[in-house]
Design a binder for these strands. Structure first.
Lengths: 133, 133
DNA sequence: CTTGACCTTAAAGTTCACTTTAAGGTTATG
DNA sequence: CATAACCTTAAAGTGAACTTTAAGGTCAAG
């Protein structure tokens, strides 16, 4: 099978070499084999693991949560655990959507009310932010 | 009129004293008058200014943007400027809602597919994250 | 007049997820 | 065999928005 040193893995995965070393320190990537000259040598599946990390990040998982998921995989743990982590993430995302939607509604309404002309004094945007609730 | 020292202002506004001093260094709060013993003495409207900051933060404005808005108010600047800042914020919020909604859709579908039973090997959640696109 | 609750400053620490720097050792190319 | 392009480590820096710490000065109550 093919093996890569860190620069090649970086090119293949789109993750900077320094970030890969950082993930190793953070226990997201396993310590790889070394060459005689102490260079890291990665097997092909290191690419998939990095891509898993990238995608999980895009889904809004923190590195702590990603580490949990990876450790579950590595240990072939309980699927229930993964489901719990993902469910919590879904809850967080739904809360974020709700609170952003509320803001969107108020902000867009306020923007409609503001002509954008004249001085700041009496500006509906400023008044909306200053508003107590 | 009533005046407050920093602890009283903190209690009235809900913003920690240290955070108030931080806002002063960051030019969000003006330098207040001082007592003979060099204590900060705040006028009543400092409460409203802090509440403006709190609300703007809840709306997702950064301190940089809030400083801009406050400076516009202080200088009685152009309403158009405030509208521009708020419009950009609305755009950011809409983008966030869109990308979170996409994630929400995929994640909730994936969670439905996962029984939550059995070992990690073959878990739909893990496979969905690993998935290339 | 002492204790404790305030206030002052400057500077360092926090969290997250890295990136940058410094100071070197190794390998491939001409 | 020189030079450029890799690789190594540890440590420090980044940015946002504060919080915490250190080392004091002040004020009200008992």
């Amino acid at each position: 099978m093919k093996t890569f040193n860190i620069g090649e893995l970086s090119a293949q995965s789109g993750v900077a070499s320094h970030a890969i070393r950082f993930y190793e320190r953070e226990s997201l990537m396993p310590e790889p084999a070394r060459t005689q000259s102490n260079y890291r040598r990665y097997p092909e599946d290191a690419i998939a693991r990095l891509q898993f990390i990238i995608h999980a990040k895009q889904w809004g998982f923190t590195l702590d949560e990603i580490r949990e998921l990876l450790m579950l995989q590595d240990a072939n743990g309980e699927r229930a655990e993964a489901k719990r982590i993902a469910s919590e993430q879904l809850e967080k995302i739904r809360h974020q959507i709700q609170s952003l939607s509320r803001i969107e509604a108020v902000l867009s309404k306020t923007l409609e009310e503001c002509s954008g002309e004249g001085p700041m004094d009496g500006c509906p945007i400023v008044e909306a932010i200053a508003q107590e609730r």
